[in-house]
Design a protein around this nucleic acid. Structure first.
Length: 424
DNA sequence: TCTTCCATCACGT
DNA sequence: CTAACGACGTGATGGAAGA
């Protein structure tokens, strides 16, 4: 029989909002701490990016929820202070956190920008009891980095994640096997990881309300409603079973995408293609930065009624070229779009392969080589002087429908400086 | 009949 | 009071197409 593992889950409390506060306080120690007032990080409603990305605890008391429209949040809480987001800032805080956590184990899984799993099985003896160690981590994060985290302690990732979610902020919680019935089973079914709105509705229709109900329910019954694989998964979760190891995330993604909600609906192909170019710029640059190629391009649309559609195509050869991706995206768009006004346009690439392992195609021409060199040069200038320093010619003329979609890397928020196009 | 492709849905942060 | 609303990445699913 193998030994029980000891897993920690670290979760930054109100991550974007905390980090926003810390940065402001660093800038001006006398500044108001956003965490102490009803506040939120959110997009710009006038550009139709108006949702709550993160909220303070006082805002939560007003019923403000992550993901809800700003207008709705402001109705619940008229005094809500809304600040824009700065994704690069969050990336740097995230890195600092991971760096600190590396003092406790080399076995770390960065789960998202503000969450990580630590396998402490082999290293806990160096530090003391699990709870003491977790508290030490919290204290160090608080004192050295200026924000707070929750730590969940458990024998596996699922339980550790459930535990870190219990009471916030700045708390340590355990969820050992013997605590499952008292701490996890009474919770509403929706609180279980992987149970979203759709699954919740189906299960409630079956009379399942709590995680305990699910844990004890008949698997066959579940299957008929929720499908084979998924049923097995959440049934195991409800019983606290999860054997997934803590693993460093793969260096490369399975897909790279970029999409943007436009300031107003678009119904002509020309404008749509300009948007596609800006999206292709970002996606291509990210592929090149990661030294990977894609062999598939998918164009996504969301129309004025919020109906989504997509269309994908395979490429002749793997590529990381902005213009190849752009051309294919335009072709796909013309192929399936009927001109219904759209509020969102996106590009996703797939079938990713490692550049080093892909032979240079025999059909590659001298022009291709030149174009690639040019794009690489552009990427370099961008990374040195900022993403706005170079714009394609066809990009300069049109009015600012898309602020700078090209500058948004995996960007959650909106673009912050509502600036002009012609930079340097 | 067994894969692969394709579009959509669901779920997480 | 009226429909107010992100940007990702990942995986499942079911039908169609292909071998």
């Amino acid at each position: 029989m193998e030994r029980e593992r000891l897993i920690f889950h670290i979760d930054v409390n109100s991550a974007f909002l905390s980090w926003e506060s810390v940065a402001r306080l660093r800038e001006d120690p006398a500044a108001l701490d956003l965490r102490t007032i009803p506040s939120a990080v959110g997009g710009d409603a006038s550009k139709r990016h108006g949702i709550v990305l993160a909220k303070s605890t006082p805002a939560k008391a007003f019923g403000v929820a992550t993901g809800e429209p700003l207008a709705q949040a402001l109705r619940k809480c008229p005094s809500l202070v809304v600040v824009p987001s700065h994704y690069e800032l969050y990336v740097s805080f995230s890195r600092k956190l991971i760096h600190l956590l590396e003092d406790y184990t080399p076995d770390i899984e960065k789960f998202s920008i503000d969450e990580a799993f630590l396998d402490m099985t082999e290293t806990i003896h160096l530090f003391g009891s699990p709870a003491e160690t977790a508290d030490a981590i919290r204290r160090r994060v608080r004192e050295e980095l200026g924000f707070t985290v929750n730590v969940g302690i458990a024998p596996n990732k699922l339980l550790a994640k459930m535990a870190s979610d219990f009471e916030k902020p700045d708390r340590t919680h355990t969820l050992f096997r013997e605590e499952i019935p008292s701490k996890m089973w009474p919770l509403p079914i929706r609180d279980l990881f992987l149970v979203g709105g759709a699954a919740q509705r189906k299960m409630e229709a079956m009379g399942l309300r709590t995680i305990g109900d699910l844990a004890r329910c008949d698997l066959e019954l579940l299957r008929s409603q929720l499908g084979d694989k998924y049923s097995r998964q959440i049934h195991r979760y409800a019983n606290g079973i999860d054997d997934e190891p803590v693993e460093e995330r793969a260096a490369v993604n399975k897909g790279y995408g970029n999409r943007i909600t436009l300031a107003r609906d678009v119904s002509d192909t020309e404008t749509a293609c300009q948007v596609l170019l800006s999206l292709a710029e970002t996606v291509g640059a990210r592929l090149r930065a990661d030294h990977v190629l894609c062999n598939q391009v998918c164009v996504e649309l969301r129309d004025w009624r919020f109906r989504s559609s997509s269309h994908q195509g395979a490429l002749q050869f793997p590529t990381d070229s902005t213009s190849v991706i752009y051309e294919e995206a335009c072709r796909l768009l013309r192929e399936f779009w009927d001109g219904t006004p759209v509020r969102l346009i996106g590009i996703r690439t797939g079938k990713i392969s490692d550049h080093a392992f892909v032979q240079m195609s025999l059909f590659e021409t001298e022009q291709d080589r030149k174009r690639l060199k040019m794009e690489q040069a552009v990427d370099q200038i961008r990374s040195r002087f900022g993403t706005d320093s170079i714009k394609r010619a066809s990009f300069l003329k049109k009015d600012s429908l898309v602020e700078h979609a090209a500058s948004r890397h995996k960007h959650l928020g909106h673009s912050e400086e509502g600036g002009s196009y012609e930079n340097s």
